[in-house]
Nucleic acid binder design. Structure first.
Lengths: 340, 340
DNA sequence: CGAATCTACCAAAGCGCTTTGAATTATATG
DNA sequence: CATATAATTCAAAGCGCTTTGGTAGATTCG
């Protein structure tokens, strides 16, 4: 059933039927009801394609998920996307996804623009600097960045967690507990968030005149074995750390495995603070977190990013929007006073 | 730049330009080259929307991710999707995603059909029985199911891992090692795969005349705390199990946590076999698996599902396609002879 | 050499909507 | 009651592509 047939059945013009269905005021109430009834009866649903072609709006948002060199898709995306999807569904937007290798990412954006299949994109995993910003600004594609990039000529819209302050506070928290040797198991430092976290960590140490040691800092793709290997290596140092700051719950699982293998009890022998994205499938304990953490829901981030992008699309001329969330420092069972 | 303008620039008809670009034979080679050059020069890319409207093909595949009652998106999707996306990209298809609560799922499919925004869908997480099959057959939407449902009137296409045989073999493996009390920490049994796994487990036990005890079987959403709690509860039984069969690496992490807390060493005091989907972000060790496992790549499943669906779309009249993969039983460090 | 056959191109219709500008019909106004 | 005005409805153009059904001009063949 399409508009033409429906209008024939109703003995009305396509114009009137279209308007009746889209809530325009210049159609008699009685007619509107008649049209709506018929639409329901024949299960009429306008073709998105035709609609988009006519209006020039694709009614779809693109997400490009970068596939790391190790072919890993960051698992926080499931939750991010489920948040975003909820917003889109409410607003009648579709979500189109492509997973691309780093080197194809630029092409992916160009394609999306040229093919006119999306009205905007959400950019994931900002680097420092990030070429995508300029690219998208140049081709005039509305976008919102989840996270921030540094070193950028023109302003752009983003939503980010205050990674620096989160890790600064976490470090201070450990310092207050008497820890002096605090290790940082960070994400890949080509990623902006990782750099900011290190920044916060270093600032806190410097403020207390604690030397920053390269031995106690690692950065890599956030996998379980990475967490495990980092702990194993660092605990073998002449002066092993008494506390760990871990960038995500996934390496933290490896951290936990290593510590238990070494017969070190978290919260007593050693302290651990993680950043917790509140992944639905890897929750950090119940009311009392298993790991003390800096916490911020990535699902909520998805929801809000989507909202912000839709606003930008609605009003492209508006000034860039910024949202900065403070992570919540939530005390769990994995931290305690420095031993000895 | 659109087709009309491009053809004006070239002083050709839209027909010829379109044909030149789409590789039709009835255009002179010299003309084709001229057209291609101009297309490149003006960065012309046909509008997907217009193309789809004209051809009647959306060139997009829909994925509906069901959000469980606990609002959890199954993390295997990231890998599944990254596999599927690769296939789509090669074939020029887009992937459109919607994450919906269970109760909205039927609507989501109906919408996709009526709006004509996708040419087919991949159905995730089959239940027993699954209403979606009949729904999709009725509305005539090409689909492929990842997994199988039981109790279905008409045949349909699917790709599945032989869950039953995998868990049967895993159970036999444990029995061969002398284990008599083997626990099953299963996924939600409203899910088809979980039922099949239990089936394999029970068959293996029955064949050796080992009683099946309700105490040793659990099924629930596959989270880390679920694995932890299951072990803790079962080890408190009068006759605790000596081995665990775990449905996924995620609860297995909780299992490991519990065992370490109980000071039980895997592979010596207690044996554990998991099903390993080869998640990119939660790898089960290196060359030697950390957990002995039944193994099947969910990323490869995504790739192949996508291929199968595209074939079905290309030739809708063809008979339903079935692919059944045997999981690989891979021996790791978490199993050993039954103690005592 | 004229007819038949290719070859290379084109005009126009159609995909299913929205939207503009005009045409009805109903209502209000003097 | 005639006319201005408001309330409804409509015909047709347009979104950017593909595809059908041509038509010229070049080539082949009897």
């Amino acid at each position: 059933m399409n508009l033409k047939k429906l209008s024939e059945v109703l003995n009305l013009s396509q114009t009137t039927v279209s308007r009746a269905l889209n809530g325009y005021p210049e159609v008699k109430e009685h007619t509107r009801i008649r049209v709506q009834a018929a639409a329901r009866k024949y299960n009429y649903r306008p073709s998105n394609l035709a609609k988009s072609l006519a209006t020039g709006q694709a009614m779809a948002i693109g997400h490009v998920l970068p596939l790391s060199t190790h072919e890993i898709v960051n698992p926080i995306f499931t939750d991010f996307i489920s948040g975003a999807s909820e917003t889109y569904a409410k607003a009648g937007y579709d979500m189109v996804l492509s997973v691309v290798r780093d080197e194809d990412e630029e092409m992916a954006y160009r394609e999306m623009l040229a093919k006119r299949s999306v009205d905007g994109v959400i950019v994931h995993g900002p680097r420092i600097p990030d070429r995508r910003i300029e690219l998208l600004q140049n081709i005039g594609m509305p976008f919102l960045m989840h996270g921030r990039a540094a070193i950028v000529r023109h302003d752009y819209s983003w939503l980010d967690v205050n990674n620096k302050s989160a890790f600064k506070r976490a470090t201070e928290f450990l310092l207050d507990l008497g820890h002096k040797r605090i290790a940082l198991i960070n994400g890949l430092e080509t990623m902006n968030f990782a750099a900011r976290r290190r920044n916060g960590y270093e600032e806190a140490l410097q403020a207390r005149h604690i030397p920053i040691t390269a031995d106690l800092m690692r950065n890599d793709e956030m996998t379980e074995p990475y967490g495990y290997a980092s702990v194993m290596a660092m605990m073998r140092l002449a002066q092993p750390p008494t506390a760990f700051l871990v960038s995500s719950i996934i390496p933290a699982i490896g951290v936990r495995r290593a510590l238990q293998e070494l017969r070190l009890e978290m919260g007593r022998d050693i302290s651990v603070i993680i950043h917790d994205d509140e992944l639905s499938f890897l929750q950090n304990g119940g009311e009392v977190p298993m790991f003390t953490c800096t916490r911020s829901s990535v699902r909520k981030a998805g929801e809000t990013c989507a909202q912000m992008l839709l606003e930008i699309i609605r009003d492209p001329a508006s000034v860039p929007r910024h949202t900065l969330w403070e992570a919540q420092l939530s005390v769990g069972k994995s931290t305690g006073p420095a031993p000895g």
